[in-house]
Nucleic acid binder design. Structure first.
Lengths: 218, 218
DNA sequence: CGTTTTTGTTCTACTTTAGTTCTTTTTTGC
DNA sequence: GCAAAAAAGAACTAAAGTAGAACAAAAACG
């Protein structure tokens, strides 16, 4: 349908008009698709207009409109994206470190937007993740220790038995195993020194599921 | 679609109309977008009317109406995409994954050169590191569980109390806490079901010190 | 009401930015 | 290695933006 260059240009035009609200100029386009002369852009745009992907208001500058987008990506683009994905596999990703969460007595999970935690991309593929620093020993029984960093996948539902970040009464967050019992929810610590909390389901919100754990010794 | 100036003016008109309840005058607009003459504003407005972003009630002053605004992506999405790009630049380091090590009965640390484990660079800064997969439960007491991956810093000496990879009789490697007692060395599991091994120092070689731990839950 | 002030429109002249067309060069695929 | 396609580059045309002034129309005001 489209050549890779045409596809790439069309996507760039679509993206920038949506992001900035105004159409890019030919020079901006040539930089974006990696050409050194805008005559090439002209040819690509003519082709896209002819195929009815773009419309241009005649005798106007910066006046292109995306008519439609192709359903299929050119195979060259698909291959390129696969390569990018592979590159990501060897890259690191920063996820927000939202602060400390009690594995003992519950405290608020403080949302400090500035702190970041770096993890391998594979750990956080497909989904939104954040990190929390464990404070307390209530989950010691399953090897989650004071000072560990846990990586949480955002979710608002969980299976019975999952370790979840649970928000109680909209003000205190805690890491516990969850178990549903009819209209009630059990928050189960993994340390005999702590007691299971039994709460009406309405007071408990799941904010994420434990996905990984990282501990540094020295 | 729009030129940058047109976009800026449209946004200004939209904003002030909503905030003050009445449309700004041409002079206010020229100050807002940084022009010194309002004739330019006139031209911009004509262009916006022509593109159907504005409507003006004829023979009225301060009588512009915003018909529509260009569709923008939510800024959150824009920011997220930018972050993804930046993530590509973040480097990860691959360290050898030497195979499974018993945290229970000792087995050989199999040196499989091909397997790699990716970790954030910060975790393995300054020193040589390798990864091992934990098999067994002998270190459960300090939160090192079956299936965990531990990151070991190469070293041939250790402090009392360190968790080390110890090679016994040059053939079996195991992860244990180490303690020196005169001519002997104690290898201490952290699970009451296992017994402390007491060996002459000559039979035990330290091959590394536990540095970090990574656990994946799902 | 008519006068003053504010506001909008038009015109000219000019600069900058953007789009088009053409020729030459490079790349690509048989 | 040759023909076709793609890209680069220069030269040109067109549109957008800038500025100032003159003027017309609408709003404000006593």
């Amino acid at each position: 349908m489209l050549t890779p260059k045409q596809y790439k240009l069309l996507m760039f035009i679509n993206k920038t008009t949506k992001e900035t609200g105004c159409c890019p100029s030919f020079d901006e386009m040539k930089d974006a698709v990696g050409l050194k002369s805008k005559s090439g852009i002209y040819a690509l745009i003519e082709a896209l207009v002819e195929r009815n992907f773009l419309r241009k208001l005649p005798h106007k500058a910066r006046a292109l409109e995306v008519v439609r987008l192709p359903k299929l990506k050119p195979s060259a683009i698909v291959a390129e994206e696969k390569k990018k994905e592979e590159a990501l596999l060897n890259a690191m990703v920063e996820i927000p470190l939202y602060g400390k969460i009690a594995a003992g007595t519950p405290i608020e999970a403080i949302a400090d937007e500035n702190e970041k935690f770096s993890v391998p991309y594979e750990m956080v593929r497909g989904g939104q993740y954040y990190a929390l620093k464990i404070e307390g020993d209530s989950m010691e029984g399953i090897g989650i220790l004071n000072g560990d960093t846990v990586i949480i996948k955002k979710a608002d539902t969980a299976q019975n038995g999952d370790i979840v970040v649970a928000l109680v009464d909209n003000c205190e967050a805690t890491l516990k195993q969850i178990k549903k019992e009819g209209p009630e929810v059990l928050l189960i610590p993994k340390n005999d020194a702590y007691e299971v909390r039994r709460l009406p389901a309405s007071r408990v919100k799941v904010q994420g599921i434990l996905s990984s754990l990282v501990r540094n010794y020295h």
